[in-house]
């Protein structure tokens, strides 16, 4: 039997690059044969010879021909990725990690709270949810970004998604708007969590964003009555292997790549420095 080398990337072609915001681009790449992921899982993408980094696909898991990742330019690998044109060859490993447990979401009100590039995994989750909308109750998608320009998936957030179904409602906010172009609410994303019109006792919340946003959102959700086991967090840690070997992603006794990246707050609340 041929040995499988888990550190060996699969070569995929970059098909399309979409500029989402000044610092974030979405990369559409051809999916390898038999590639299948679930919302919340992540992949390792390599720019050959430049480096590799973990990203959560933002496309729908039901798309089997391609997958998309939305990437903020923050360092060596992401910078190299941002400089690429369609036709470039990328390395892909995965999918890795745990997905959002949709079977536990059925029949419930679902609250998604995302900020910045944290909207990426939530987009994939949102597309999974609307694919089988009949299984779920209300869906509230609360999105925040620093400025109106920084919003990603603008067309979807502002035009398409709010019109999907009466069960679905979007709430958007920006931290600030210097030129007055923004007509919506201004303030951090936790502000959108008041008067949710959800049955909290029968609801799950899913949060993804920068650590500080995750922290305050979690505290706000607890205040609103969400139980720690019903708050799902997508945790970020430094990662190398993505599959439980290298130990870079340790979060207390957990490995984020293997035991996560999706955790309930209940699972990790007693670990030190979870918001680092």
């Amino acid at each position: 039997m041929a040995k499988i080398n888990p550190y060996q990337p699969y070569q995929v072609e970059l098909l399309k690059v979409t500029e989402e915001s000044p610092s974030i681009k979405t990369f559409t790449m051809a999916a390898p044969p038999n590639f299948h992921f679930l919302a919340g899982q992540f992949v390792e993408i390599a720019v050959p010879g430049k480096g590799e980094a973990p990203f959560t696909p933002s496309s729908s898991p039901y798309e089997t021909n391609y997958l998309e990742v939305s990437v903020a330019k923050v360092g060596a690998t992401t910078e190299a990725l941002h400089s690429l044109q369609p036709g470039a060859i990328l390395g892909l490993r995965g999918p890795f990690g745990k997905d959002y447990p949709l079977e536990k979401f059925t029949g419930k009100d679902i609250l998604l709270v995302g900020g910045g590039v944290g909207l990426a995994p939530l987009r994939s989750l949102f597309l999974s949810l609307v694919h089988e909308l009949h299984l779920f109750n209300k869906i509230r998608f609360c999105c925040g970004s620093r400025t109106p320009d920084d919003f990603i998936y603008k067309e979807h957030v502002f035009d398409h998604w709010p019109k999907i179904d009466p069960k679905v409602c979007l709430r958007v906010t920006v931290d600030r708007c210097d030129d007055g172009c923004w007509k919506g609410p201004i303030g951090v994303v936790t502000k959108t969590l008041d008067n949710l019109d959800l049955e909290i006792k029968n609801s799950v919340a899913v949060v993804c964003g920068p650590p500080i946003m995750m922290k305050f959102t979690t505290f706000k959700l607890l205040e609103l009555g969400y139980r720690p086991e019903n708050i799902y967090l997508s945790m970020e840690r430094m990662m190398v292997c993505g599959l439980g070997h290298c130990q870079h992603c340790g979060l207390g006794k957990h490995l984020v790549c293997k035991d996560g990246p999706v955790f309930t707050y209940q699972e990790i609340k007693d670990e030190p420095e979870i918001w680092a």
């Binding site: 390599a46 050959p48 010879g49 430049k50 480096g51 390395g91 190398v240 290298c246 870079h248």
Partner: peptide
């Protein structure tokens, strides 16, 4: 514990 270091090659890495 380990890290990766990816180095460029003529036609790959």
């Amino acid at each position: 514990c380990f890290s990766f270091s990816d180095l460029p090659e003529k036609s790959g890495m």
